[in-house]
């Protein structure tokens, strides 16, 4: 596990330097503090969702959460609808967290109680959640997010967006501590890798996975809250593509898709790399269609490098 992450980080750092250097040569005007702020602002949503995604995938059992994007959209819509319906504004953050967690726990029930394959279960809820968000709103945004949220959502501290400083960094630090230094963390790696042995020693695998899906929903709910505070409105398509980009970040960050291997530092690094790349391509006026293709090629490349290394080591 450690030998895997130890090479992931240098690779990601190298790629990141390459991208920044390329951008500095091609578009020197992009080298500004405001670019850093933009990158981190966009990173916040992806980082939160990727954290939840990583926990689900680390827990193994073919775990995956394809519904995260739909959850972000639907939570944002639900929160703003309740807000306009007269629910006190100060409750909006609570609504986001509760709604996100509940939507995530629905996945948990489908997977751990009804024994649906996670890929199928969360693909289903992805359609339900994102479809509902679009249907309720007819596709248009709901404006008028509470004013008290905006200074936090748009504020910066030395160029760092406040949501990044107050949510992403502390949550990743806590999650890393949890995985590395607590019994719960060891259990996640244990049943993520070898479910049968974990069950034999009495680890409550199903309950833990149920919680992991709830946690992924909670992170999606937080991302919805950040989007409201940042944009000032709820967009029914705000979560679009987050399921795929978060998957990309998790795998790029060195987490094995079969679970039990990898760490969260790599995931955060991969999030920053992906958003830097996207922002850079945007600055260079590269068509968004090409951007998606480039990210896909990057994912395949990094996984290939990793595979070759694994084959060499076992040979």
């Amino acid at each position: 596990m450690s030998s895997r992450t130890s090479l992931t980080l240098p690779i990601l750092a190298g790629l990141w330097i390459l991208i920044v250097a390329g951008l500095a040569i091609l578009q020197p005007s992009a080298m500004a503090l405001s670019t850093v702020t933009t990158v981190l602002q966009f990173s916040t949503l992806l980082a939160l969702v990727s954290l939840g995604q990583a926990m689900v995938i680390l827990g193994g059992g073919a775990g995956i959460d394809l519904s995260v994007g739909g959850t972000v959209s639907l939570v944002a819509i639900i929160a703003m609808l309740l807000d306009t319906a007269g629910v006190p504004s100060f409750l909006l953050p609570v609504v986001c967290l509760v709604a996100g967690t509940l939507l995530g726990l629905v996945n948990g029930i489908l997977v751990t109680r009804l024994r649906l394959l996670p890929l199928i279960a969360t693909l289903g809820t992805f359609y339900v959640y994102s479809g509902t968000a679009l249907a309720i709103t007819g596709g248009s945004a709901i404006g008028g997010a509470p004013a008290y949220l905006l200074p936090w959502g748009r504020g910066t501290l030395a160029g760092f967006p406040l949501p990044f400083v107050t949510l992403v960094l502390p949550l990743f630090v806590l999650a890393v501590l949890l995985l590395r230094y607590t019994a719960w963390g060891r259990w996640i790696y244990a049943f993520g890798f070898n479910e049968r042995s974990a069950r034999l020693v009495g680890i409550p695998v199903d309950r833990a996975r149920f919680i992991a899906y709830g946690f992924s929903g909670l992170m999606a709910g937080l991302a919805a809250l950040v989007s409201l505070a940042w944009l000032g409105s709820a967009r029914p398509n705000i979560g679009q593509n987050l399921e795929l980009t978060s998957l990309t970040a998790v795998m790029l960050g060195g987490v094995a898709i079969f679970g039990g291997r990898g760490g969260l530092v790599g995931v955060l690094a991969a999030v920053l790399l992906l958003v830097t790349l996207q922002t850079g391509l945007l600055q260079l006026n590269v068509n968004t269609i090409w951007q998606v293709g480039i990210i896909g090629a990057l994912l395949i490349l990094v996984l290939l490098v990793d595979n070759i290394r694994m084959i060499r080591r076992t040979a």
Partner: peptide, 15 residues
């Protein structure tokens, strides 16, 4: 029933 991704000590104490 050992977890190959964990250390010896972690396996001995798992659960």
């Amino acid at each position: 029933a050992l977890s190959e991704n964990l250390s010896i000590a972690e396996n001995v104490f798992l659960g």
